[in-house]
Design a protein around this nucleic acid. Structure first.
Length: 490
DNA sequence: CGCCACTAACCCATGTTACG
DNA sequence: CGTAACATGGGTTAGTGGCG
């Protein structure tokens, strides 16, 4: 059977409802779906494929992402033919009817849907022993096509996601998989900013019309909760979201942490590597003290930049003794110039043992001065709000660096105690910034007690996202003091 | 084929709460 | 104490399968 020779007769059923003005003909995606459905049906007629049947014995053509994995190409001529035949019959309920020369009767084939069971109308519960209805909207299929075209589609098996009911579950599963391999923070923990997540899953919906902000509560209720429920309740899906953690900035939910694990007998790569020395280059970390030492070093590395320091430390630990590593880390941290590749630098530094030639007392002597005057050229006084807007981000960045330098300075003065505080903070996952303490901060030289307090405090809060600093009054005070920006007066 | 009941996705109004 | 953000109930629209 040849699809190009009009053997198939497509017809679209119009609903009895009025055609909505939004419907402007079938999209390319819908045509693609039709074509693929037709192709699969032809294959079934040729005996190359078994079509599933519903409870009443009717055959149907299920369309799922696998249809696109298979690489069935869209024939342009056939596509055009379908378009012409469909015309403007873009009814609300679209069914595919296929009439072949061999067939006397028409068959109704739901598009992109499959019947797996039903819900009892009266009780509104799933009938025991039968699965729920499943559908796949064109929009979802379109997403898969786009991902596929980009070539960055995660190569998970169709079998794992075929029973998802909610469209956003596909997306969430996809982004979770992608970020598990790329941007994982800890084992099984994936972090997104709410804004980013909203863009990925809701595409500009659930927005406050006044300010365009994502309405998180609705987003959570309609998208996140349903998607997570979908992912968790489907046995075929091997991933499980064990908890959803909200990180707030004030009242606003700024970031979302997904705690994720595989359901049965599977581990993330890092987990298996930690348990099995033969996997990868990592060694086994069994001793709690060693683990703490590693975490402490990783915590110190965070001031250099984001990278996979944990892995580096584990590797270095195998090759060199702790003292040598620590001294060279100190040496690295005390470098004035900006090091482009801190990891590479550190490797070489430890290998060549740069720190050996430097006396211990001088290791911290070259530490950057926290109160060093900003390099940034100060604008003139009596500035307008517009100029503040222009310079705000840069000043915030500089301000952020200022805090980091302070942290560093206090760390040098206070030593390991601060680090313990910081580690404790990391472990307890302290909530949002304590605004009161920061807002009461003034640009004054603190007393020794204050230094001690602030050292702990700063280090405790070290590593918080930069966005938070935009919110605190410390930035305003800093801007006012250094650049004569009286932000409050604007 | 027409009607019904249901659902996903989205949207709106109102109430609640924490922050500044 | 005003406001912004969250929480919640409920409605709309397009799309879905069941049924006769």
């Amino acid at each position: 059977m040849d699809i190009e020779n009009s053997v198939l007769n497509f017809r679209v059923q119009k609903s009895n409802k009025l055609i909505n003005s939004k419907q402007e003909g079938l999209t390319a995606t819908q045509n693609k779906i039709l074509l693929i459905a037709a192709n699969r049906y032809v294959m079934a007629q040729n005996g190359e494929l078994d079509l599933p049947t519903d409870e009443r014995g009717r055959q149907y053509v299920p369309l799922f992402p696998r249809d696109f994995f298979g690489g069935e190409k869209v024939n342009g001529r056939a596509l055009q033919q379908i378009k012409e035949q469909l015309g403007d019959l873009t009814g609300i309920s679209v069914f595919l009817r296929i009439q072949t020369e061999e067939m006397e009767e028409e068959r109704r084939i739901p598009i992109a849907s499959a019947v797996r069971g039903y819900r009892d109308r009266k009780t509104k519960k799933t009938v025991e022993g039968k699965e729920m209805q499943v559908s796949l909207s064109p929009e979802i299929v379109e997403m898969f096509i786009k991902q596929w075209d980009k070539g960055n589609f995660t190569q998970y098996l169709y079998e794992k996601v075929r029973d998802f009911r909610v469209g956003s579950a596909f997306k969430l599963y996809e982004v979770l998989l992608q970020h598990l391999t790329k941007n994982r923070l800890q084992h099984g923990q994936v972090k997104f900013s709410v804004e980013m997540l909203g863009e990925m899953l809701a595409r500009g919906s659930y927005r406050n019309k006044k300010n365009g902000n994502l309405i998180y509560s609705e987003f959570k209720r309609n998208v996140l909760a349903k998607s997570i429920n979908d992912i968790n309740s489907n046995d075929r899906c091997d991933l499980e979201v064990t908890s959803l953690e909200e990180k707030r900035l004030g009242r606003k939910v700024q970031d979302v942490f997904f705690h994720v694990r595989y359901k049965q007998g599977r581990h993330f790569k890092a987990d298996s590597a930690m348990k099995d020395p033969e996997v990868g280059e990592l060694s086994v970390v069994t001793d709690q003290l060693v683990e703490k030492w590693v975490r402490a070093l990783v915590a110190r590395f965070k001031r250099i930049g984001r990278s996979n320091w944990h892995q580096l430390v584990l590797q270095l630990k195998n090759e060199y003794d702790n003292d040598r590593i620590e001294k060279n880390i100190d040496y690295l941290l005390c470098q004035q110039q900006r090091i482009k590749n801190p990891q590479g630098y550190l490797r070489t530094a430890i290998k060549e043992n740069y720190a050996e030639s430097v006396p211990q007392t001088e290791l911290f002597a070259v530490a950057p001065k926290a109160t060093k005057a900003p390099v940034y050229e100060a604008p003139k006084p009596n500035l307008e709000k517009r100029e503040w807007e222009v310079h705000k981000e840069r000043i915030a960045e500089e301000f952020n660096q200022y805090w980091k330098d302070l942290c560093f300075q206090y760390y040098n003065q206070l030593g390991e105690d601060c680090l313990d505080d910081y580690l404790e903070y990391l472990q307890n996952e302290a909530p949002a910034l304590e605004r009161k303490s920061l807002s009461s901060w003034e640009m004054q030289t603190p007393s020794e007690e204050a230094i001690r307090f602030f050292g702990r405090y700063l280090i405790k809060n070290f590593g918080t996202p930069q966005e938070r600093l935009y919110q605190v009054k410390g930035l305003k005070a800093y801007a006012k003091k250094v650049y004569q920006f009286d932000v409050d007066a604007f």
